[in-house]
Nucleic acid binder design. Sequence first.
RNA 1: GUGGCUAUAGUUCAAUGGUAGAACACUGGUUUGUGGUACCAGGUACGAGGGUCCGAUUCCCUCUAGCCACCCCA
Length: 470
Amino acid sequence: MPKKVEKAKGVAKKTAKSASAGKSSSKKATKKIEKVEEEIMLQPPRGMRDLLPGEQPYWAQLRRVASKLGHEYGFQRIDTPVVEYANLYTRSIGEGTDIVDKEMYTFTTRGGDKVALRPEFTAGLCRAYIQHGMNVLPKPVKLFSIGPVYRYDRPQEGRYREHWQANFDIFGEQDAVLDAQVIQLAHRVVTSLGIKNVQFQINSIGCPKCRNEYQDLLVAYLESKKQKLCQNCKKRLETNPLRVLDCKEDKCMQVAANAPQSVDHLCNECHVHFKSLLEYLDELDLPYVINPRLVRGLSYYSKTVFEIWSGDEEGKKHSLGGGGRYDYLVETLGGEHTPAMGFGLGLDRLVAEMKRVKAKTYVEPKPKVFLAQLGDLAKKKSLKLFSELQKNGILVAESFGRGSLKSQLRVADRLGVEVTLIVGQKEALDETAIMKDMVSGTQENVSHEKLVNAVKKILKNNVVVSNNVL
RNA sequence: GUGGCUAUAGUUCAAUGGUAGAACACUGGUUUGUGGUACCAGGUACGAGGGUCCGAUUCCCUCUAGCCACCCCA
C-alpha cells in the first residue's frame, strides 16, 4: 500500500499504536481516523523540488543574462500558459516521440478537457502566434520565454519532472543566417554565464520532401540489417526510424555507422541552406561539430537541428539545451506557412554547471544599516523611521521582534552592517537616535531630521572598505 | 520503463536487538540599554507499512523518496 510519509508524527504514531492495540475489532474506526487525519506529505511530488533562497543568486544571474541578451537580439518576452490542450502537443511534437508517448503530464479537467502540462515551449508559442495573428507583425517575430516545463520522466541528476527552460524562437524568416544567429545567441548566453567547455552539435535533417526520400533509404538499409539491431530499435524502425541512428547500443551503433546519412541526401534547397549555415558558423568562431546522427526527440524539426553539450573533464557530457528549425509547424497547427527557428536552454543544468565552474552570481544589495529598538514607544517610532530611511534610499535591516539590545546587535553584526541606529525610550521621546558606526565602534546622538544625511555620510566614507560584495 | 545503492535532528554525521549522541545551525541567557569569541540552558530525528522476536531504529519483505547507470533529453 502506498502510504504517505507522515510528519505529524506524534499524532500519527498514536493512531498506529492504538490501532494495533485495538486489533481487528476497531479496524473500521481506525480507518476512519486515519482518513480524517490524512497525512500531509512533507515533500513535493516526485521529481519536483524547491529552489531555496541559497541558490537564488545563480538563478537571478541566469535570468538577467538570458533576458538581457534576449533583449539585445531583439526578442520580446511572452508568457504562455503552463497548461494547454493535450492534442496541441501530440500534434506538434508528434506521436512516436518519447515526449508524447511516455513523458507527457496529461490529465482530464473537471470539465472533461484533456490537457497537459507543457513539455516544452514551442508548441504553445506557435499556438499563441497563430491565435493572436502575429503573422501581421513585421518579420521576423522574435519571442522569448522563461518558465517551468514538465516531463514525466524518472528523475536523476540534472533531470527533473519540473525543470526550467529559457526559450528563444524566431518566426517568419527562413534564411540560414537566422539559424546561425540563433546558435550564436545560445552560445553567448552560455558563455556569458562563465561556462566555457561547451560544444555545439549540428546537423540537418532536411525538409519533409527530402527527409521522406532519405527515410525510405534508411529504412531499406536498416531492414536489411534488422537482425543486428536491439529490441528497441526494431520497434523504432516502425515508429521513428531516424532515432535508430541515435541508439547507444553497440550493435546498433555499428549498423548506424554505415547507414546512409541525411546530410548526403538533402535536396538542393536544404543542401544549400545547410552549407550556408556552416559558412556563417565558421565566421563566428564557435566550437561546433557536425553530427550526422543528431536527430532530436521532436518530430517537427526540419533542416537545422542542434544541441549544446557541456563536457567536463571526465568525458561525462550532457545536454544544456538544443533547438532547430521548424518551418512547417505553424502550418501544421493551422496557421499560414511560417518558417521558424528556435532553441531552449535547460536552466537547472545551467545552474549546476555554474556551480561547478563557480560562476558569478547575482546578489541583491544588502542593507548596510540596522535599526535597533528598545521598549514599546521606541518600537512604534522605529516602524516609521524604518520606512522613512528606505524612502530616502537607505536599505535598512531590523529585528523588531527581538527584545534585548544585545541580541539585536548580534544580528546586526552578523548581517555585516556598517551602521546601527539605536532608538530607546529616551531617544524615542526626544526624536533622536544613537548612530553607531559598527566599524569604528564610535557612536553619537543624532536628531531624526538629520539622520538620513548623517547615515549617508558614514556609508560614503566606508564605501572603499565594503565594496566587495559582487 | 529496467537495474544497482541509500534513507537517523534544520544540516553533516555517529551508536545500538532493550526507543538514540555529537558538531554546526536555531532560540534564550551570562545583573540593570551595546556586537565577535567564550560559557550555560533549551527544542527538534530513527521515511511509511507489514513481518520475525519477550522486545526492532537495528534483521526480513513491501511501498515511497533520493542518488547512480541504462533509456531519453533540458
